[in-house]
């Protein structure tokens, strides 16, 4: 399975903005709290949620430590890190190799399972097109096999092959031919044995990391295209849609608010604590560009916070609200920070 290798962590850091590696770790492995989401928004990392769902978090921390030892990253006293000049040079190299054009797919779909599904679809369609009934199956995943079986039961193997070939040709025709070949090198099928990423890297004289990233990029974009074009194959893809409970709960709370419910009413209705409802709302403010900030923050409050907080939002702390904490709750303070971040990025 293709993966995101450790060198790529450099891609996430900046020479200007000190960033917390722990936030990256939590976002990539989808361990989300409102604080993680807020800082993810500040660092513009939200597109990368769930990029590495089975990440070894201890290994991640070690790798960051190693990048600091190698002087690619510079650790600050507050636990944040800055990209060094060496790190920046390395980052530029990485950026030139390949990047993920649609990382947001990872937040919404189980892409690593979809990679297995694609490999299975190709092998089954390939062998069937050559009328081979006996072959060593390349994917040992029960769920993928069950999803494919259901689809084939409804549409048949011939339709699978025709649809898949059409979609692959259409998608790959617009790709760089070398990337398209890397994408195809992962497939097993009739008289076709897949190559390992290391072998592909050696054959093309590029890094293994570049091959792995190319595979992830093309796989994720291919499945996205199947969904967006409403391909007949799409139902198999949507089966692997992530259950995004956090997002759904936040949306539900936001809907109630826009329908005129007050926070105490929502608390009573949902049997949840007020703090949980407020966290849902903060999440909704991060996820939704048209969040109704005006319902929670008056102009006076915004002006007051604008006066007492410094210009650099990254430096803000709730303690800076000081004597006004009785009037300005943490909820309002964080909401204001989200609003200001949105305002900055829209400018």
């Amino acid at each position: 399975m293709s993966k995101v290798s450790e060198d790529n962590w450099l891609l996430f850091f900046s020479t200007q903005q000190a960033r917390r590696p722990a936030v990256l770790r939590q976002l990539l492995s989808k361990r989300l709290s409102n604080s993680t989401l807020f800082w993810g928004m500040r660092y513009q990392w939200l597109a990368y949620i769930n990029l590495c769902p089975s990440m070894d978090t201890q290994a991640f921390d070690q790798q960051i430590k190693l990048l600091c030892q190698q002087k690619m990253l510079l650790k600050q006293d507050d636990g944040t890190v800055l990209l060094t000049a060496d790190g920046q040079a390395c980052q530029a190299q990485l950026q030139a190799e390949h990047s993920l054009a649609a990382p947001q797919v990872f937040a919404n779909y189980r892409v690593y399972d979809l990679v297995k599904l694609l490999r299975l679809l190709v092998q089954v369609a390939s062998e069937a097109s050559w009328k081979n009934a006996r072959y060593y199956v390349a994917v040992d995943d029960f769920e993928c096999q069950a999803v494919l079986k259901n689809w084939v039961r409804a549409h048949g193997l011939r339709a699978l092959k025709e649809q898949l070939v059409t979609e692959l040709k259409k998608f790959l025709a617009l790709e760089d031919p070398q990337d398209a070949w890397i994408f195809c090198s992962q497939f097993a099928g009739h008289e076709t044995v897949p190559a390992t990423t290391k072998q592909v890297a050696q054959a093309l004289n590029i890094s293994q990391r570049a091959v792995e990233l190319t595979l992830l990029d093309l796989n994720s974009r291919f499945v996205l295209e199947l969904i967006q074009t409403n391909s007949p194959l799409a139902p198999m893809i949507t089966h692997f849609q992530s259950k995004n409970a956090l997002y759904q709960k936040s949306q539900k709370t936001l809907t109630l608010i826009t329908r005129g419910f007050s926070i105490p009413q929502i608390v009573q209705r949902s049997q949840l604590k007020e703090s949980t409802i407020l966290e849902h709302l903060l999440n909704a403010a991060i996820f939704n560009a048209d969040f109704p900030f005006e319902l929670f923050l008056s102009n006076t409050e915004r002006q007051l916070l604008g006066k007492i907080l410094p210009a650099d939002i990254d430096q803000w702390q709730y303690s800076m609200v000081g004597e006004y904490q009785a009037k300005i709750s943490f909820f309002k303070y964080r909401l204001y920070a989200i609003w200001r971040t949105r305002e900055q990025s829209e400018r």
Partner: peptide, 15 residues
């Protein structure tokens, strides 16, 4: 390594 580095040939062989 796979015999061809042309993705079209890989597809042709597969299907």
């Amino acid at each position: 390594t796979p015999p061809s580095r042309d993705y079209r040939q890989v597809l042709q062989k597969l299907f």
